[in-house]
Every structure is written in C-alpha cells, then in structure tokens.
Design a protein around this nucleic acid. Structure first.
Length: 639
DNA sequence: AGCCTTTGACCAGCG
DNA sequence: TCGCTGGTCAAAGGC
C-alpha cells in the first residue's frame, strides 16, 4: 500500500454545463511493484453529481487473474475500490493491485474553481486550475503517500475520514457502487482495461496486450498507457448506451443538458442519440431509482444501474428505491442499497460474519456460475447501504442473461432500438473487424458508436439479452421460474419469450458420444419440446442441443446471427459441443460475428478471417480457471 | 424442486 | 502453543 510509485498521473475533468461545472480529477499512482495501482480521488464540490465509471487501472504485470476488486463505500461519504490479491491462492498482498475511489462531499477544494467553460478532461491537469497543476506535477512519492493514506483510511470510520482536497471524484447520488464496475468508460471502449467484475479483467490484457488507445476516454482508464496518454483533450464519460446502467434521469431536459455538457468535447452524443433515448425509455419503469436533483442539473451523464430482479424475487421491491434516495440533507451522496447481483452476475451467499473493525457484518458471496471462483464480499450498513464491496477473482464467463431486469416496455424498447442498430451496424460489422476491435472513434454529432462492441450484450445488458452468450442458459433462462417476475402487472416472461428465436442447434453424430469432456453420453430420449420445432434428433438421431437465442425481429435476427455464431461457439464449448462430433447448425448463413463481451473485448479471442471460421480455435483466456479449455477449437460451424 | 439465505461451527493463517 | 481473526462449510429453513 505504501510503496514507492513510479507513475503519478492526475486526471481531471471539468465538465461544464449550463448549470454546473464538474471538476473531476484522479490521482493515479502506479506502484513500482507494477501490480498495485492507486486511484485516489475525492470530490471537491458539493453536491457531487459526477459519475465516475471507474475501471481498474491496469499495471504492467498481470496478476489480474487472481486479483480482487474492492469497492468500499464509506457510509454516505466515501467509496473505495480496492483490488487485492487473495490470501492464499493468489499473490501476496504486496503484489496486490489496488484501485480506490474516495468520495468526499464536504470538501471545498480549489477544484471548485474549475473552469466552467472547460469541457476537457485532460489526463494532465488543466492549466487553469493551479491546484490541479500542482497535483499533476505531484511527485510519485506524494502519490504513494496518498495511497498509503487511503490504505489507512480504508479501515477508518467514515466519520474519521479526512477529506482530501486534492482530487475530485464523486459518486453521484443514487448511483450504484457497482456502476463503477460497469464503467461506461470501460465498456465503451474495449481497449479499456476491463473490470474484474466484468469478467475480463485480465483477458483484455492478455489478449490484446498494452493497447494504445486512441480514445480519450479509454486513454484514461485503459491501462498503463494512460500514463503516456496525455494527448487526450477531452475526458468524456462515455456511458455505454447499451449498458444496463441506464441513465439516471431520462427526461428530455437531461438529455439536452447532457448534450450541452459535452460541450466542445462532444465525443459521445449519448443523451441526444435517438438510440440512447430509446434506451432511456428502457428504464422508464425504473426511474424511481434515478437520483433526482442535481443529477439532472449536473448535466453529467449519470448512469444508474438498476436491477429489478431481486426486489421482485424477494419481495423487497422497494429497497432499491428507498436506498437510492440520496441524502438530501447531507451534502454527499448516498449509496444505493445494492444487491450482489446488481453487477449483473449471480451470486450465492455462503457466509456472513461480523469482522473486526467493521461496523457492519460482512457477507460472502460466490459467483453461481459453474467453475467460477469469483467471490464478492459485501459489507452493508444497517440501513441496507453497502459500505464495502470486495471482489476476489475475475469472472471467466459472461454475465448471465439479465432479461429479468427489464420490464416489458423496456424489452420492447430495446428490441426496437436494436433493430435500428442492427440495420446500421450490418455494414460496419463486416468491415470493422470481427472481434469488435473497432477503434471506437468518437463521432461527434452522431449516434453513439454502436459498433459491434457497443452492441455487445453488456452494452444493453438486460436489453441485449439476445446478444448474450448463453453459457448459462439454464441458470439464467429467462423463462425459468426464478426469472419470472411481474412488474406492473406485466409478465416479463411472456414478453421475453419470443426472443428465443431463432435457434442454433448443436448436434452430435452418434447416439453414443464420447465427448472431449471425458464423459460418455448416451442418448436416452427424443422429444419435440415446446417452442422447438425440431425433436431433440434428426435423420441421424443426432442429439440436438438447443442453443437458440434471439428475438423475433427479422432485423434483429439478422443481427443476432452474428452473435449466434458466437453463442454457438461459446455454448458449444461450454456445454457438450466441445466434441469434435458436434456440429453447430445454423439456419441461415452467418457472417461470423465474434461478439464482444460486456467488457468490450473479444473474450474468446481473435479468430482471424470469419469467412474461414469452420474450425474455430478458441484460445482459453483464463488458463487457470476457464472451465472448458479442452473443448476449445473443436466446434464446427455448419453451413 | 431448486436456489437462496441464515447461522453456527470449523479451519487456517498470523502474531 | 494459543488465541484471535477472517474465511469457509454445511445443515436447516425459506422462497
């Protein structure tokens, strides 16, 4: 925690709107151990309307695989994101990578003097702010000291937290802490260093290596290159238009202000984008989760991750709303009474304990995905607000299908939107690279780049379930009883169901197959199942594994065709399709689309020319934990 | 029926 | 070696 730093970078953002400016700065310190990074940030202005979607900062060495990711949220005052190594299996704490966010709401930092007309957020401190200049030129030792200080503060009572005035980072009221983990900045650019919670914390790093980003947004958070990327002229929060992090406020005013707020940077016409507006409508039923007040006036694009599943499942539908109410009385933001699943993954609580030094009991969660060792620790205050979140490990799987998150209207809106996007993306998909490795070049005055990356599942999260890689189709089948929910009298299940089409079928060639998974499988039945015109066998008694996902829209289907290739790949690899005898049958010619996962990366790696993708070698990204590496590369895509 | 939470007990690391 | 502590297990019960 207190090691010497080699890099110290101050990132600041001054967002000006018609009503308010948003000083924002980060202090990035990269430890000499190359595995530890501190991001120290504090807000200087009350109220703190600025969202900081905050991916972890990559360091040169990749202990990311086993890194943990902690987001500590001091009660109504502070947020700390910490990545740390696991005690035993993982590298020693000295190797740990740490990312912290400190939010303070009472500071009257000189950041208040941030230029209202400045919309740039240079990695380097804007010259107009002496304080930031000073911070920018702060020595590495100072950053290290700050990091050490934060390490100490981590265990301090929020009330005891000294409020730094050096940097500005604010978690907006009503913003879920995991919104940081779902960083739009991160997601918007696949070059950004993914968050552990996005399941690709290290994968991008492994697969793409250090990637110099051309995107100013990405530059800030992508990786170590951020320290070299000082050419960025504009720091722009780039809310993923399709993320489940829906804008907190969806009204037109907000949109307009957001547009205005973008000012000269305007790299992301997020709010003004028609598609985005549609997505805004997605959350129309969840506006109660949006933070009112200065989130609207802020002009900052403040996505709020909403999750309606658990409330409906557990009959605590009001908790989220209640908890999302930011502290009107105080000057600082409150934190949402978040649930473990708010980050999009499914978690199972396996323990709870009151740890020493913590005011609140700590809950232990495990990712429910098979073979996923990711754990999540929650510390929750008595009123349900999370005070600390600690992630351990990284997901080696995509997020489960989040269809339950959306209301009927939301789903329809998303489908509609996606249909539009599909039309506009068809051409782009084909030429911009199969793996979503588009540069995400900012296109001012245009619809947010809905490149294949942006259209990835996580982009829309719940709304984009057709695009999801259904490795957990069973677990997260939207039609399963647990997924059924009734929101406003509308059975979401019934709404979601149509998106099961079209289907992708994996077939085996023999009645008894010895698959590469080492098990011997015998066909024991055949049946025409509801919704599937095909019996579980064909002429040759193939065993079909329905991989179908999709939506009704023809356009969407077309769009999904791209993804289903991926789906079939993934699912095939993760189910029984690993066998060389499996054949992924697709109803229509498919332009291979290697969907990019939510983290904006090609989770399953580059595959070269899609037209040559009959045999797909899928390099396991996580050699240590990827569940089916042995199955890779044996899936055939049918004609 | 399956999944989840709860909760006391157990285990292992550390000083 | 012992006690403390954090983390995990697993039975029981609920949804």
């Amino acid at each position: 925690m207190t090691r010497k730093t080699q890099h110290n970078t101050q990132i600041q953002c001054n967002k000006s709107t018609t009503s308010q400016s948003f000083p924002f700065s980060l202090s990035l310190s990269n430890s000499d151990k190359a595995s530890q990074t501190h991001i120290l940030s504090q807000t200087a202005l009350p109220p703190p309307p600025l969202v900081l979607p905050f991916p972890p900062i990559s360091t040169s060495t990749p202990p990311f695989l086993h890194s943990s990711f902690s987001l500590k949220i001091p009660h109504r005052r502070r947020t700390t994101i910490t990545t740390q190594s696991k005690k035993k299996k993982y590298p020693k704490p000295k190797k740990k990578m740490e990312l912290r966010l400190l939010t303070a709401t009472t500071s009257t930092s000189t950041s208040t003097s941030s230029n209202n007309t400045s919309s740039s957020a240079d990695v380097a401190a804007p010259p107009e702010d002496p304080t930031r200049n000073k911070e920018t030129t702060a020595s590495a030792s100072a950053a290290a000291a700050a990091a050490a200080a934060n390490a100490k503060y981590r265990r301090m009572s929020p009330a005891k937290l000294p409020i730094s005035r050096s940097t500005c980072l604010t978690i907006p009221p009503g913003l879920s802490p995991t919104s940081f983990l779902e960083s739009p900045v991160l997601l918007s650019n696949m070059k950004a260093e993914p968050s552990p919670t996005t399941g690709s914390f290290m994968k991008t790093h492994m697969m793409h290596g250090p990637i110099g980003s051309t995107n100013p947004v990405t530059t800030v958070f992508s990786n170590t290159n951020i320290f070299n990327e000082r050419n960025s002229s504009c720091f722009e929060f780039k809310p993923h238009a399709s993320s489940n992090m829906v804008p907190a406020d969806l009204n037109q005013q907000r949109s307009e202000q957001s547009v205005q707020a973008q000012g000269q940077c305007q790299p992301q016409a997020f709010a003004s984008s028609p598609s985005v507006k549609k997505e805004m409508a997605v959350s129309s039923n969840e506006l109660s989760l949006a933070s009112p007040g200065h989130m609207v006036t802020s002009g900052a694009i403040v996505p709020v991750e909403v999750d309606t599943d658990e409330p409906n499942q557990r009959g605590t539908s009001n908790t989220g709303v209640q908890a999302s109410q930011f502290d009107h009385k105080g000057s600082g933001p409150s934190v949402i009474a978040e649930r473990p699943s708010d980050d999009g993954y499914n978690w199972r609580k396996y323990g709870q304990k009151l740890v020493k030094g913590s005011e609140f009991p700590r809950s232990y969660y495990k990712c429910t995905h098979p073979n996923c060792e990711v754990k999540k620790l929650f510390e929750r205050s008595h009123d349900g607000q999370i005070t600390e979140i600690i992630y351990k490990g990284t997901h080696d799987h995509p997020k489960p299908q989040p269809s339950r998150r959306y209301t009927a209207g939301a789903i329809m809106a998303v489908q509609e939107e996606r249909s539009d996007k599909a039309l506009s993306l068809n051409g782009r998909d084909e030429r911009s690279g199969m793996f979503g490795q588009t540069s995400h070049t900012v296109e001012p005055n245009s619809t947010p780049d809905r490149s294949p990356v942006a259209v990835n599942d996580d982009s829309l999260d719940g709304g984009s379930m057709p695009n999801r890689i259904h490795d957990e189709a069973d677990d997260d089948d939207p039609f399963s009883k647990r997924r059924k929910m009734d929101i406003g009298g509308v059975d979401v299940t019934s709404v979601v169901k149509p998106i099961r089409e079209p289907r992708v079928v994996v077939q085996t060639l023999s009645e008894v197959d010895i698959l590469d998974d080492g098990y011997r499988w015998r066909k024991y039945g055949q049946k025409v199942v509801r919704g599937n015109p095909n019996p579980r066998s064909e002429e040759n008694d193939n065993v079909s594994l329905d991989l179908g996902v999709g939506i009704n829209s023809a356009v969407e289907n077309r769009s999904n065709e791209h993804r289903q290739t991926h789906h079939s790949d993934i699912r095939g690899s993760q189910t029984h399709a690993s066998s060389s005898h499996y054949n992924v049958v697709q109803a229509t010619p498919v332009m291979t689309y290697f969907g990019v996962l939510n983290t904006g990366m090609s989770q399953y790696g580059s595959r070269g020319n899609p037209s040559e993708s009959l045999n797909i070698g899928i390099p396991p990204l996580n050699h240590s934990s990827y569940p089916f590496p042995q199955n890779m590369g044996k899936i055939l895509t049918g004609p």
